[in-house]
Design a protein around this nucleic acid. Structure first.
Lengths: 365, 365
DNA sequence: GTGAAAGCGCTAACAT
DNA sequence: ATGTTAGCGCTTTCAC
């Protein structure tokens, strides 16, 4: 089974405890002893047996990152940053794809993992605030993204209202007046069937209700409304498109619908870059020109948008920082360090203007 | 630390061994006993402590999937399939991003993981066949992708030569005669600096040498040459573009270069979809029309290509099957089941023709 | 069909 | 500064 502590101890002529201390550095070790031990370790090629360590410590050294879809480049990019930080801190990060499924999200939040993970970084999209408040599992939890707000956990997400303001203001500054929002949510069908108590069919057309538990799109939608108001533009419910999910196809279908109307929009603010890219495609299919006839903006700054035709204007959150912060706060909780109460952190973001709003043909880079 | 076997045993009035057997089913257990135990398990909410199990069994239940970049949608899609299969078989899959770094790949192949993983699914891009042959680690290994061939490990990859034939034949059937190949590899700069013995600067311009260890692009390039020949078209080294990596930017830069030449190509066969998408962008920047002036085809069938402008023609490998198969073969080796020698499996693929070669404007779907 | 007990490799509490 | 030792919870002989 490979070299173990005992063999190292024998080879170096010291006790198990001393070797352990050289490896872990919990207690000071004499300089010569340390050298002898280190040499034995190198010669025999020792590496600690993690199962044993974890058993003894009562922790697994594994943290999970649960996201609604691995396929979404935003999450893939985020996951990269999180993985690097986890490795740096001596943890293994495993990914968990909830497929934006409410049952899967509930199971995760409820602690379906038992002893298999030390902590969870979670980006829920189908959970209500109440679901999260009802959680009993004591596995440390850090939330990311726009799924849930105002819960007693560390939470990391950009300021969505502010981001939406920036996006809409950008469009307004370019003279757009009929700005559509694509990616509003009403209760998803599954939630409805499984007996949600919220008025699930009170969709965006009627304005989002206070009780609506899909807060993600809610906030971006709210920022959108506020910014319109600030610009003195009317809020037109007909320009708010509801989508089932947040993928390319959703943006595509929404735009086909929007473009079939009497008075189509002159700009589209997509819930995220994927939705915006779907919109771009629908607009191209309709034979319209971006941004001359319709300008498009998204959120996320995924690499795809830097190479699309046209390139996509977007709000770029600091993904690296989000991933890093999430892992750090989680590990702090796991190791019992933080005296601090759960915090809400809003990493920076910035507007990246590209062809889909500015027009022209710019060289990538 | 949660409920353990002992508590269940006490509650059910049986021994530890019996509970263990109910949980694992290694030995038959009496019907009534089983029921009593099961009830205790349900009531107390028992879940086995994996660290302890792994320590005892000498395995961790963790397998790793090492890929050159998590950001590449092809791998993200593949990873999803692999994750599902791993879960199904009772394993946890962790992702490892080698960043296409040779040192990282060598470390992984060499078994830098020691006892932390039971097995490895690996898609190397910087490893030579010799590197893999020199491997001593006894951690079970399954290779995927085009990085390495003819090594004594299970290997899963589409038939690259055949796939390239199909791609080129498609372009030829559309009347193209000056077909460029984008994504050939010469020895990467790092490899060169660290003392590769192959003639690293013998690039594609001179034709790929037998000793070239970057076999990936090699095969697709070979298929490309063969198909040209079969079609009676000349092989023009000036139409083979070398790239450093296989991302969008690489395709973009390669095309800028190609388009600056005297006689630009009338079609582009990209090493993969990302390269092809970069090419699409460069062609748009140059104000040329796809496919009228230049047709473009890639390999991978990533979702992005279904929504790009124009949509991307591609060779679609069965990613679901590749992921599933890789996990299955690995688990078989881990659990010592297979009597069979290492096998080379070539999952099916198919041509998906879209706007970038067929032209027109087709509705997505 | 069931039970008793050894021990996987490690860490941490308690020595010295 | 270093050593001794008791388990962490489980699987797996070896008994019955």
């Amino acid at each position: 089974m490979g070299v173990n502590l005992k063999e190292i101890a024998e080879r170096a002529g010291v006790s198990l405890a001393t070797v352990s201390n050289v490896v872990n550095g919990y207690r000071p070790v004499g300089e010569q002893t340390r050298r002898r031990v280190q040499q034995a370790i190198d010669e025999l090629g020792y590496a600690p047996n993690l199962s044993a360590r974890h058993l003894r410590r009562g922790r697994t050294g594994i943290i999970a990152l649960a996201i609604p879809e691995l396929n979404n480049p935003y999450f893939a990019e985020l996951a990269g940053a999180a993985m690097r930080e986890a490795t740096r801190l001596g943890y293994t990060l495993v990914m968990e794809d909830t497929a934006a499924d409410r049952a899967a999200e509930l199971a995760l939040a409820g602690g379906s993992h038992r002893r298999t993970i030390d902590g969870l970084i979670f980006s829920p999209v189908r959970l209500s605030r109440e679901d999260v408040l009802a959680r009993t599992s004591d596995t440390p939890l850090v939330l990311i993204g726009e799924g849930v707000y105002d819960v007693p956990y560390d939470h990391i997400a950009i300021d969505n209202i502010a981001a939406s303001h920036v996006a809409v203001r950008h469009l307004v500054s370019l003279g757009r007046r009929r700005i559509a929002f694509v990616g509003a949510q009403f209760g998803d069908p599954e939630g409805a069937r499984s007996g949600d108590r919220d008025g699930v069919h009170a969709g965006a057309r009627e304005g989002v209700q206070a009780g609506d538990h899909r807060q993600s799109a809610h906030l971006r939608l709210r920022g959108y409304r506020e910014a319109l108001e600030a610009a003195g533009l009317p809020f037109d419910p007909a320009l708010v498109a509801t989508t089932a999910q947040f993928g390319r196809r959703d943006g595509l279908l929404a735009l086909r619908d929007l473009l079939a109307r009497d008075r189509p929009p002159d700009a589209v603010f997509g819930y995220n870059d994927l939705v915006a890219i779907g919109a771009l495609r629908a607009i191209a299919e309709a034979g319209l020109r971006v941004p001359e006839q319709i300008a498009v903006i998204g959120i996320d700054d995924i690499e795809e948008g830097r190479f699309s035709n046209p390139t996509l204007t977007t709000i770029a959150p600091d993904k690296e920082q989000i991933g890093r912060l999430a892992v750090r706060s989680l590990v702090a909780r796991i190791e019992g360090r933080p005296i601090s109460p759960p915090a809400d952190v809003a990493p920076p973001f910035r507007l990246v203007a590209r062809e889909s709003t500015l027009g022209g043909r710019r060289l990538v880079d």
